[in-house]
Design a protein around this nucleic acid. Structure first.
Lengths: 249, 249
DNA sequence: TGCCTAAAAATTGTATACGATTTCTAATTG
DNA sequence: CAATTAGAAATCGTATACAATTTTTAGGCA
């Protein structure tokens, strides 16, 4: 199984028809979905940085779509928390506040351990293999120096766990929180170069392999607390960068 | 303090600029917000029933707006889970499945008790008075036989508690869950005429008054479990009703 | 009568045009 | 020279028009 195959499923199309790019609700129709997913992936891989302006005209020209559909896509991303829209000013990649950063990881520390427990009890052999491949893909991306890809895959691992638990409502919430975590990490991560812990993922995998719900819950809890404490909470400036540089250059 | 004054704040405008009608994210601009809130209130008060079609033209005519803005409003409601949009078919009031009903209340049972504990520790005297007024308003609506209003106020009480905890992220999640709970209750509530328990709310208020976090957490937990067990999980038919009958008649 | 088919009507998806607000620029002035 | 201010440019909010899809309805046939 290749890295691409693993990355293919996850944040985006999961959840069936009518579900959003964040695993939330109500995806935009037709072409807007494509733009939505494309932008989301770019944001999650940190190719688009928090604070960047997303002009309707510019996005429309890049993706060859009219402003109508671009607006739908931007609004959808706004609903998922990745984009902030200011009236008469436009859309920007969200810049989570320090407080919001705390709250997001506290919420994850509350919700994800419970879901990990459920996943451990329900997981099948095939799913364990898939998780293993996920971790493998994380390593590959990390060794290749593709930090953005590696981080995106790390998020997908959490989503894969939540999918195994087969809880759609909590799963949708977790997807949102993970998306926002990506923005938070982009802004506040302490060591931009350091390997971001796939050790915990491996430990969780082993707990799930033995269907040890209690252990899975505890590992997930401490894993998220670790992530939380890996943040450095000081204000960061946002250096301007244009959209075209990312999608054209 | 009047009932109207209490009902005025809550699901809708809370959260500040840029926040959605569900307490989620990114409200639609200008006029769309009005339509959004109006429809939401109608749904939450069970004046609009699950399954009902929300035609863009029809909604636009009723609110005197173009389809453009109506679409934005409907999409926003879709993102909050109150409305389901099917491609090339239109928007409908969501009909939560039985499984989704279970999951929503299980999620609430996980999240709300924690938030209730935080609220109990942070609550001020003034906030306690406001909560008291909320409960009073619930009674008034109930005695007046206004079931929809009463139920809507019951949801607002939970939101008020979450606001006291001052957790924006968990608060937004709770708002969504409560909105969806309203749909679930409309579909699956066992006793349509029975008084829907404001006793628990009073007990929670007392625990909060003494800043007893442990008690608040436990009361909230059992309260939500009670709500969950008050559901009857069998398929319900959906009787067609038109929009105009609700907003015009 | 029941069912299949095709045309018509209704509804949504998308593009474009215009008005309102904001932002940028440059000339003016103390 | 810095601050201010009017004008221009850019950008968003909304309305309307047309295309694509679905739903309904009318007709024909076994």
């Amino acid at each position: 199984m290749t890295s691409a195959a693993v990355a293919g499923s996850g944040l985006g199309e999961a959840g069936g028809a009518g579900r959003g790019p964040d695993g939330g609700f109500s995806l935009p129709p037709g072409r807007a979905l494509t733009i939505c997913l494309e932008l989301q992936q770019a944001i999650l891989e940190h190719r688009l940085q928090p604070g960047m302006k997303l002009s309707e005209d510019e996005v429309g020209e890049i993706f060859g779509a009219s402003r109508t559909v671009v607006r739908a896509a931007l609004h959808a991303l706004a609903h998922s928390g990745l984009v902030t829209i200011e009236r008469n000013r436009g859309a920007f990649i969200s810049r989570p506040t320090i407080r919001e950063a705390h709250e997001v990881f506290e919420a994850r520390a509350l919700i994800e351990p419970r879901v990990a427990r459920m996943a451990a009890l329900a997981v099948t052999e095939a799913q364990l293999e898939t998780l293993k491949a996920h971790i493998e893909a994380e390593h590959v991306a990390l060794d290749a120096g593709e930090m953005g890809k590696s981080l995106s895959l790390s998020g997908l691992f959490h989503i894969a766990v939540s999918d195994i638990a087969d809880q759609q409502v909590l799963g949708a919430i977790i997807r949102q929180l993970i998306s926002r975590s990506s923005l938070i990490i982009a802004l506040y991560w302490k060591r931009p170069d350091t390997a971001c812990e796939s050790h915990s993922h491996h430990a969780l995998l082993e707990a799930m392999a033995t269907h040890d719900g209690q252990a899975a819950e505890e590992i997930m809890k401490s894993h998220i607390v670790d992530l939380h404490s890996g943040l450095e909470l000081k204000e960061r400036p946002h250096h301007g960068q244009t959209l075209a540089e990312v999608f054209r250059g």
